[in-house]
Amino acid sequence: MIDPHHVLPPEDMSNEAIVRRLTEQANVRIQNGQLKKKKLVWLELTGCSGNIISLMNGFNPNLEYMLTLMVDLVYSNSLMAAEGEEAIERLMSVLDEEFILAVEGAVATKNNGLYNVIGRWRGKPFTALQAAKMLGEKASHVIAVGACAVDGGPSAAKPNLAECVGLSDIVKRPMIKLPGCPCHPDWFLGTLAHLLMNGVPELDNMDRPLLFYSTLIHDRCPRRPFFDKGIFAKTLGEPTCLFKLGCRGPVTRVDCPTRKWDGYVNWPIGASTCIGCSQFGFPDKMGPFISYDITRE
């Protein structure tokens, strides 16, 4: 049988045409059930819900692409139309199926998790702690998205009244860690694409994909020549090396300088110091973020 979507020569070989053809083919296969999109659950736990906002900032791929062509997003507190019990029913319905779990936010553990209630289940408060355990155990893959999910992040900053911890302290299983505050949309979507196409990406010994987290910011910083020559900025806004103002580029391992943010227009060091938001121990071990008095002249 001739495939109705087969393209006869001379076919348009422009990138746009190829993408359009592949997209159409994938869509047809999804529609007729040949291809099944994997289910994705995005849990917002104890944090600012800024990683889903960052995900909405993805340019290529963007959120529309992820929703329609990459996965079937089943649960997202910030985006889903359903609410109340209906929303929680949806969340529970995936437990019997295969799904990928993305978690943003830390897990508040104080008072049995009551410092962060994410819904009601059968009339009782359903805590971030319960959700992390319940879904974390059943998921086919777990991705900790952003600083809070990775190791507590800002939610666990001293004195940590809610006794927040990272996801891996609660869910004892292999997981992919994507530190960053927030996580860059490409770090998540690229990891997700790798999971869908080729399985778990190669990780370093801290469970971060080497694809994004292999190189120190300092090693690819456009201000590096100033560091090498010992020319340091005395205030923010100078174009030279910000090391003596407290820049954490020398200890932070991620592709920020080459990837850049928000449609690839700028990055933190384009405005001020790096505060080490993608490094373990952020924020407590990365402060002070700006220091005007490291050297005295």
Binding site: C48, G50, I53, S54, N57, C181, P182, W261, D262, G263, V265, N266, W267, P268, I269, G270, A271, S272, T273, I275, C277
Partner: peptide
Amino acid sequence: HQMLAVIGGKAPHNHG
């Protein structure tokens, strides 16, 4: 957010 990042470095959580 892109417009914000042009002078703010990144968004969310700007450095500007």
